[in-house]
């Protein structure tokens, strides 16, 4: 399984999770885990996704998610999970 981490940060509004999930579904990305918090009016979400069957590579997906973030006024990043496991796990 090829995992990636998606982080979404921005001002909370209706449709954020739906918007992100629709784009992921369109690209055949499976969502493994979602966690989110809303602090004051700010929305923070982290998703662990499986991109092994996605129709494009991680870098291209990262561009798609960044573009979606710009449309929605959010910062959306997609990064392969190894960078985090290498930083924080022995």
């Amino acid at each position: 399984m090829e995992r990636a981490i998606i982080t979404v940060v921005g001002v909370d509004k209706v449709g954020i999770i739906a918007g992100v999930c629709n784009v992921l579904a369109a690209h055949n990305v499976n969502i493994r885990s979602i966690s989110q918090t809303i602090v004051d009016e700010y929305f923070n979400m982290m998703m662990i996704v499986d991109i092994s069957k996605a129709d494009m590579k991680a870098g291209e997906l990262a561009d798609v998610m960044a573009g979606l973030g710009e449309e929605m006024g959010l910062r959306i990043r997609l990064q392969k999970s190894e960078i985090f496991s290498q930083m924080h796990r022995i």
Binding site: D63, K80, I83
Partner: peptide, 8 residues
């Protein structure tokens, strides 16, 4: 590509 994949 690697830079984009890992966001660094």
């Amino acid at each position: 590509e690697i830079s984009k994949d890992y966001g660094i």
